[in-house]
């Protein structure tokens, strides 16, 4: 097992960069981070749209969320693989295809997280803001969202773990991420799948478990803070 790592660690870490796109573990983390970074503002906008007064906006966003919740991510990936280059009119690499699929899919899921955070705030918060004469937009951006995002931070971290795991599906459309690197090594060595897939699984585990544990730690802290405020 160690000799596989020793001989292939660069490939596992960064793929065949600089002769190709950044791949390997770095590719996985890059894809996951960029996707979260873009999906988050989208999800906040969607969560706000679902609480808005316009029925069309509300209905439209609600259908998107339901559609995403009812469709396997793999289906979204294949759609994206076909549609994104067609709609843009220029060729798009698999990395960005996967990025679009993850952003669309995760925005829907994250918007549920953010919405839950908004709805979990005591009604008194928005009432107090209204009683002070604060307009809706100021109330949203200075009172509601900061608290909702802070409170749902652990849930967001948990969702980041999901995104890391989901990037592995990029393998199916040829994204040069971590699973792809392992598959390439497997194709080279042919007869040592147990070791290669163990390395793959363990590495994913270490990364995802660290983030999941961090999420739990943050959640305990936030809950403690809230406990004080209930006094």
């Amino acid at each position: 097992m160690l000799d596989i790592i020793r001989e292939n660690w660069v490939l596992l870490l960064i793929g065949n960069y600089p002769h190709g796109p950044v791949g390997g573990l770095v590719g996985t983390l890059l894809l996951a981070s960029v996707s979260l970074l873009i999906a988050l503002p989208c999800s906040v906008a969607m969560a706000m749209a679902r609480n808005s007064h316009s029925r069309i906006l509300r209905g439209g966003v609600t259908s998107i969320v339901w559609l995403m919740r009812g469709t396997p991510l793999l289906m979204v990936v294949f759609w994206s693989n076909y549609l994104v280059p067609l709609l843009l009119g220029w060729p798009v690499g698999p990395f960005w295809v996967m990025f679009v699929a993850l952003v669309v899919y995760e925005s829907a899921y994250l918007s549920e997280v953010v919405r839950a955070g908004i709805n979990a705030l005591p009604r008194g918060q928005s009432e107090a803001a209204r009683a002070l004469g604060l307009p809706e937009s100021v109330t949203m951006f200075t009172i509601i969202l900061p608290q909702a995002l802070y409170n749902s931070f652990p849930a967001l971290l948990t969702q980041f773990v999901s995104i890391i795991k989901e990037t592995s599906l990029g393998f199916v459309i040829g994204v040069h991420e971590f699973t792809y690197s392992a598959a390439v090594i497997n194709a080279n060595l042919l007869v040592r799948p147990v070791e290669i897939f163990s390395i793959l699984a363990l590495t994913y585990f270490i990364i995802c478990f660290s983030f999941a544990s961090a999420a739990r730690w943050v959640e305990r802290r936030i809950r403690r803070n809230r406990g004080l405020s209930a006094q």
């Binding site: 005591p122 008194g124 918060q125 009432e127 107090a128 803001a129 209204r130 009683a131 002070l132 004469g133 604060l134 307009p135 009172i143 900061p146 608290q147 802070y150 405020s229």
Partner: peptide, 20 residues
Amino acid sequence: LNAFRERVGFVFQQFNLFPH
């Protein structure tokens, strides 16, 4: 309405301070 509410103070039973 917001301009009107600026002129009327309101104190709640549950305080409703902004915890952040």
